[in-house]
Amino acid sequence: MSDAREALEIELLTEGIFRHYGVDFRHYAFASLRRRVWNSVHAEKLVTVTQLLDRVLHDTDAMERLLLQLSVNVTSMFRDPSFYRAFRDKVVPLLRSYPFIRIWHAGCSTGEEVYSMAILLEEEGLYERSRLYATDMNEAVLAQARKGIFAMNVMPEYAKNYALAGCKAQLSDYYLARYDFALFRQSLRRNVVFAHHNLVTDGSFNEFNVILCRNVMIYFDRELQGNVHRLFHASLRRFGVLALGRKESLRGTAHEHDYAELDAVEKIFRRSA
């Protein structure tokens, strides 16, 4: 059926990276990993996956480039506006009863969705008592996220998402336009901790009221998804909220029955056991 040699080369690549650098892509979903591996092969102007393994083992700069290529960092502010609407309608009322709110944004990439959540919490009057832990496996994207500077040319799209998300002001109230860039207000970051955390290899580091992990685990295979769900379950307070991507589910995981559905379409769950 499938190309056995290609599968072998990709397996050797992930094994080699893991053994030499300790970065573990061995349980990434094969089909999408395969695409990104080939994108890297072409970007490095190579012909085979095995040549890519040779290069990254001997050239740490090439490894840095591969790391960026293999981790998916496509995101936008208020991605899926209806998710933010559902969060406002169904999760915010639950959060109001807590004196202190801890939120883990796992796989935050360049931070667009973290700033979106900060804005939402600010508008709901909850930001002051919230702390957002935004983590990613990639230091380069975290450095970008900390800056809170995004390209000006995507702001119209983000402003449209912001309005569809049912937000209350203007997105432009939250940033300063400087040439081609939008600098988001420092104050949005005062309760955000950006930190390195790898879902594949790192454990639990706190107990949270909310865990957001949308469109991150689609890049993992079932076994790794199971491990991450175990980690989230252990990191979530009872009655805490877990938000997945719109096309993800808990089906088939060991914790399928430990959550109740808060919003079936937006895939927002509440820990019940």
């Binding site: 094969f30 089909a31 998916v72 469109n215």
Partner: peptide, 12 residues
């Protein structure tokens, strides 16, 4: 995407 016998999704 097709991933063996299952579907896979990507936001790339």
């Amino acid at each position: 995407l097709i991933d063996g016998g299952v579907f896979a999704l990507s936001t790339e």
